Simulated assay, not measured.
Amino acid sequence: MIINDQIIDDIALGATVLGTGGGGDPYSGALMAKAAIAQSEKPVEIISLEQVDDNCMTVPSSMIGAPTVAIEKLNSKEQMLVAFEAMEKALEETISVTFPIEVGGFNSLIPILIAAQKGIPVVDCDAMGRAFPESQMVTFYLDGLPSAPNTLADEKGNVVTLHPLDGVWSERFARPITEEMGGSAAMCDYPMRGVDLKKSALGGTLTKAMNIGKAIRHANDNSENAVDAVLDIVGGQRIVSGKILDIHRTTSGGFVTGGVVIEKLQYSDNQDQPDSVVVHFQNELLLAHKGRSADDLSQENLLATTPDLISILDHETGQPITTEQLHYGQRVDLIAYPCDPKWRTDKGIEVAGPNYFGYEVEYQTIESLLETGGK
């Protein structure tokens, strides 16, 4: 599949849904990706996992940092290329393909920038099936693949190369370096051969993002319900249709953390929806429960929790809203849907379940929670 402007727009839109509130600003990412393919000497192609040569070197391209930083400090396409070429230098080898480490707004488009500048294809896969806030929260870590080397670059030209023991140490080292780089940085990690990528990556996620974006676009063009169109693809349900009553955000430590309170719309068709819902986030939306404050969190009030996916969409248009764009008065639909089965393993829940983030509740699948009152 040859990438064009419409495909970029559809991927950006759909990946922002799957990004669960994180992954960076899709608008600036789409502009940069379009400019990159326009300037490329040859078309940029998306290939399937099956088309990747077993012996070739593959490396993801991404940004690390708090999404709110990009509101004031625009990312630079040069720094992404610097990090990528620093990885080639560290490996002493040419990288044959790239791909997103996560499917989230801006981060799903960075590989297109790299591919256009390097003349290589983008693989239709990622390592999360969504967006997560920390470096070890990838299927590669679940499968025991090495993270090293890591390369980070900022817009000033600073480059750091790391050799962490694993993804956890990568996160510990890379996060404070990112803070010193101004709160966001380009990053490459988890270099691997094609044979390992095929075994560990989640295939078809860029295509899934594109199909979600296309469904939202078509629904709005035909005066249909765009949120329903998204739910048909992801296999989830609305938790609540409501209005944002309160939002608090803090940017520190390389993350944006906080919570949002959503009150059910009085004219909502579903009277079974909770009257109010609190959603907690750390870059991404992580947990939703009934009530009006964080103190209302309990196993009985739980509505959805990481690693399952939670998204906030505009009530009228189905447009996904990232955590840095949430504000008082927005009318939204809060939806939740299942994660990839790899995240429902014991290790997956240990790495990215609610307990890891400090929430004192046990993971329950979104299917079971919706049966008990989240519908």
Rank of each mutant, 00 (worst) to 15 (best):
D9R: 14
D10G: 02
I11W: 14
G14P: 01
L18H: 05
T20I: 02
G22N: 03
Y27H: 10
S28E: 04
A36I: 07
A38W: 08
V44W: 12
L49I: 07
E50Y: 02
Q51M: 13
D53W: 01
P60R: 02
S62Q: 06
S62F: 12
G65I: 03
G65P: 03
A66H: 00
P67G: 05
T68N: 12
V69K: 00
I71Q: 08
N75M: 15
S76R: 00
V82E: 14
P100Y: 10
P100K: 13
G104R: 00
I112T: 08
I112C: 13
I112H: 09
A115L: 09
D124Q: 11
D126H: 07
A127T: 13
A131R: 02
F132T: 15
F132P: 06
Q136R: 01
L145D: 08
P149N: 03
N150P: 00
T151H: 08
E155R: 12
K156I: 04
L162N: 05
H163I: 11
H163M: 13
G167I: 03
W169L: 07
F173V: 01
F173I: 03
A174F: 01
P176E: 08
G183Q: 03
P191N: 11
S200N: 12
L202D: 11
G204S: 01
L206H: 02
A209F: 01
I216G: 09
H218T: 10
A219M: 06
N220Q: 14
D221T: 08
S223Q: 15
N225K: 12
N225E: 13
V227N: 07
D228A: 11
V230L: 09
D232R: 15
G236K: 01
S241R: 14
K243I: 15
I244A: 04
H248P: 04
R249L: 15
T250C: 09
G254M: 04
V256C: 03
G259Q: 13
G259A: 15
K264M: 10
D269C: 08
Q271C: 05
D272V: 06
H280P: 00
L286N: 00
L287D: 07
H289F: 15
S293I: 09
E300Y: 10
A304H: 12
S311D: 08
I312P: 13
H315P: 02
T317W: 03
I321V: 14
T323Q: 09
E324P: 05
H327D: 11
Q330W: 09
V332N: 06
I335R: 09
G348M: 04
Y356Q: 04
V361Q: 05
E362Q: 10
E362T: 10
Y363K: 02
I366K: 05
L370M: 08
